[in-house]
């Protein structure tokens, strides 16, 4: 038996909107730790890792570890039927082939339940060891989204370079080229507006902008984004979900032949 009650139901709606473009079908894993997911896109270039910790739910019952295969587009369709202020409860029976999403309006005068068929998904979990990154950039998530969107009108790839001077996003295309440099800026009024660069070594990596733009669908989840870079590793783009966990996107770099 599984019963997870999330008072801030809009979080789950936003999570689905942020990952459904990248991944079609995925297993949601439920354990005493929380509600989680790890899934790669079909080309195995990008991976999403989601964690919603059990403590973040108002009620969290998970009698045994469960893995529930869901089509994310169908799940998003159902969650779209929940109001932004609704409380969402996820329910499933052990060994069952459906999951139920229950939506309660804040005043309890409307209660809906939507039952969705589960699917069997062969998922391959990648082991991702904890890594020391050469540079970690924390910046406003809206600024990062704007940069990715702007650069994708010029080119297909972005070179992200971190030096003492700041973080540089560069692209090149048929019509020309573009460079956007963000300097460390910690003297702003609000901490969420700061750009903070924590660099141990300079780093420069090339990535497909198509994926970066897809990751920025998570912007509504967090005011800030952190971008962790190492010269020999995929980039990690992380959106923290307030008091609950995170959505992390991993993206393998492009290399010069």
């Amino acid at each position: 038996m599984l019963e997870l009650r999330l008072v801030q139901g809009s979080l789950l709606k936003k999570v689905l909107e942020s990952i459904k473009e990248l991944v079609t079908d995925a297993n949601f894993d439920c354990s005493s730790t929380g509600f989680s997911l790890q899934a790669m896109d079909s080309s195995h270039v990008a991976l999403v890792a989601l964690l919603l910790r059990s403590e973040g739910f108002e009620h969290y019952r998970c009698d045994r570890n469960m893995s529930m295969g869901m089509n994310l587009n169908n799940m998003a369709k159902m969650l779209k039927c929940a109001g932004n202020d609704d409380i969402i409860t996820i329910k499933a029976d052990d060994g069952g082939d459906t999951v139920t999403f229950m939506f309660e309006s804040p005043t309890q005068d409307k209660i809906s339940d939507f039952e969705m068929k589960l699917m069997d998904i062969d998922s391959e979990h990648l082991g991702i060891p904890e890594a020391e990154y050469h540079a970690i950039v924390k910046m406003p998530s809206s600024e990062f989204a704007r940069i990715c969107r702007d650069l994708s009108s010029i080119g297909d790839t972005v070179v992200i370079s971190v030096t003492k001077e700041g973080v540089k996003f560069s692209t090149k295309g048929d019509i020309g080229s573009a460079n956007i440099v963000c300097r460390q800026n910690t003297s702003v009024d609000k901490p969420e507006e700061a750009t903070v660069i924590d660099m141990n070594e300079p780093v420069s990596l090339t990535f497909a902008l198509r994926y970066m733009n897809s990751f920025t669908k998570a912007t509504p989840l967090s005011n800030t984004v952190s971008i962790s870079l190492s010269n020999e590793l995929p980039v990690v783009v992380e959106y923290k979900i307030a008091e609950m966990g995170y959505v992390r996107f991993y993206l393998a770099p492009k290399i010069e032949e």
Partner: peptide, 14 residues
């Protein structure tokens, strides 16, 4: 030319 690497080049399956 640029080549897109896959995640398996960095991580292995559990």
């Amino acid at each position: 030319r640029e080549t897109q690497l896959r995640l398996e080049a960095f991580y292995s399956f559990n």
